[in-house]
């Protein structure tokens, strides 16, 4: 049962990820990206990481993608306004994208050797255990990450201001 759900979710994720790239209309691309995020959240639930799944939906599908959609709707992009890029740029993009794919495949090559670290602990992804791990074992990196976010927020607010006094 779980295996079939896994295959279905993977198929959905990959299909909609392709559709993000191939859709002509940017709004459709964003909507396909949202479908991809939902498929990935489904994977998290299969791994019993409910907290991660919920946060993934809230942050990516609920907040970031809404802002994407917002901006794209406001710009009202269509075929007439689409900028035509030069052949060299397209060639460079294709080559660098291909190199990135090689890197990804190379990094995935050793994946079969990784053992399931928490095979016995099925509830590792539940919020209680996650909190214990985050605030006991990984306290410093966690706090550093939050300070980084705070800095980014202050930066965004500063950039958003029209004039600095």
């Amino acid at each position: 049962m779980t295996l079939y759900i896994f295959y279905f979710l993977s198929f959905l994720a990959i299909l909609s990820a392709f559709m993000v790239v191939f859709s002509k209309n940017p709004v459709h691309s964003v909507l396909y990206l949202i479908v991809t995020f939902f498929a990935i959240a489904g994977h998290y639930i299969l791994l019993n990481a409910q907290f991660l799944a919920a946060v993934h939906i809230i942050v990516y599908a609920g907040a970031i993608m809404v802002l994407f959609l917002y901006v794209i709707m406001m710009l009202n992009l269509n075929k007439e306004t689409e900028p035509h890029k030069s052949t060299y740029l397209k060639l460079a993009a294709t080559v660098s994208g291909g190199i990135f794919m090689v890197v990804l495949i190379g990094s995935l090559k050793g994946v079969e050797k990784i053992e399931n670290l928490n095979a016995a602990n099925q509830s590792a992804g539940l919020i209680k255990n996650l909190g214990h791990v985050l605030y006991n074992d990984y306290m410093l990196p966690f706090e550093m990450a939050s300070i980084l976010f705070l800095t980014a927020m202050v930066g965004a607010v500063l950039l958003g201001k029209n004039e600095l006094k």
């Binding site: 907290f51 919920a54 939906i57 809230i58 599908a61 609920g62 917002y70």
Partner: peptide, 25 residues
Amino acid sequence: DVNIGILYIFGVVSIGVYGIMIGGW
């Protein structure tokens, strides 16, 4: 009674925006 009930509600509420945005667009 999922252990992330409040977050679940939040997720659903945050998706609720799409109904209006997609319809309007």
